[in-house]
Design a protein around this nucleic acid. Structure first.
Lengths: 223, 223
DNA sequence: TTTAAATTTAAAGATTTTTTAAGAATTGAT
DNA sequence: ATCAATTCTTAAAAAATCTTTAAATTTAAA
């Protein structure tokens, strides 16, 4: 899971949640610091969006508790605009602080900046086409956010195809890429893997929307 | 040298410079992006404070030039308060953006937060994933707060895996990391240690929740 | 329309890789 | 020097993946 949003205001929480999830991040939304602490035990998050004014444990105290166990970037949100609040937040271990009301696109760009700094430029680690996402680092593939069980060879083939979205990929080139030039595996095996890939990826393997065959040449992913 | 300040307004530049140098950081002050680029060739800075409105090359263009060669945190300063400027700055590679006029103590706390994130403050002593905690300094591991008896090699393996949560760790890489490139221990021993680790960490070693095997490649911790 | 070539499909066998258990070798503490 | 803990090896069993084969289908061209 990417982001945990801790915000007690129902409406604002939902707004942020919708925007974030529509921006290709996964998120959970909780209404109190106590719930957040529980969630953190069970799930792994890459970033925290933390409201300051919360019922029960407030944002500052929650943060110092969280910081004992977790080192992920934390972005605080608050209506309190005085300097001391900002400074206190960051001294407590927040990475950044955004004043309410804020523009949601600005929030998103702050999130991106924090993720970039904490985890590196790994947007290029993920290949996306429509609702298919291929994560090179994790070697996982999802469709509509649900993960697909994919084998090694299948992954290698899909990776190469998705690195060339819209371009016709020559069968021999694809084969060499996946098996290596000197492999003595039969070329026909490639067809078989494509069949299985379609089985997993396509809604209707007979009418491929993603992996299209280009007669006498090879395959083309998408477009 | 810690910080390079790029600010053409003499008075403001001096103010920032004084405050920063009085706060135990070393700094250089330049008045243009061109000068900054020259300085960056010669000196090594840990952070950049970059004004947007500059004579000659402006802050945005300077930043995209800088980002080709440098990855240090960059904090932009500008009187332009519109969202698009902020977003553009961060898309271009800035880590944060502060509106002028700003409070200098707030600026300082932003600087601290950025340095902390980029270079670490407390040597990431504890790695946490869900209910598993690994204390690097103490070489201990707990699950749900209860300590697990773990041997040296097991710890080394787990540490490396947990430093790469969610990413597939190549078996050879993992081996080299733990045993060293020139070790003549058999590769297959790694499998055995993983088996023991699972015995200790997993609820059900047959259905690993933490240490997953990625066929043909290696292992992946979590996600 | 017919034909040959290319691709799809399904199934089964082969191969590779991982898991597992047991024991041998090594190390460090007493 | 002895003992216990740890590290390492080995080999069989199990699991997952890879590969081949051949028949069925589709396509493009004669």
């Amino acid at each position: 899971m990417d982001i945990l949003i801790i915000e007690d205001n129902e409406e604002l929480g939902q707004l942020i949640y919708d925007f974030i999830t529509n921006s290709d991040y996964s998120a959970d939304l909780v209404k109190s610091a106590e719930d957040a602490l529980k969630k953190l035990e069970k799930e792994n998050y890459r970033l925290l969006l933390l409201d300051v004014m919360l019922p029960g444990l407030d944002g500052f105290n929650a943060l110092s508790k969280i910081r004992k166990d977790h080192n992920m970037p934390v972005l605080m949100m608050s209506a309190r605009t005085d300097d001391d609040s900002k400074i206190l937040g960051m001294e407590t271990g927040a990475d950044d602080y955004i004043e309410k009301p804020f523009s949601v696109p600005v929030l998103l760009s702050k999130i991106k900046a924090l993720l970039r700094r904490a985890y590196g430029e790994n947007e290029n680690d993920v290949l996306t086409y429509k609702n298919i996402r291929l994560n090179v680092g994790a070697r996982t593939v999802t469709k509509d956010g649900k993960s697909l069980e994919i084998t090694g060879k299948e992954f290698d083939i899909l990776e190469y195809l998705m690195k060339n979205v819209g371009k016709v990929v020559d069968k021999n080139k694809l084969f060499d890429e996946v098996w290596g030039f000197y492999s003595d595996t039969e070329m026909s095996s490639l067809n078989v893997y494509v069949r299985w890939l379609r089985e997993k990826i396509e809604d209707d393997p007979k009418e491929p929307e993603y992996i299209k065959t280009v007669w006498r040449v090879g395959y083309k992913f998408g477009e």
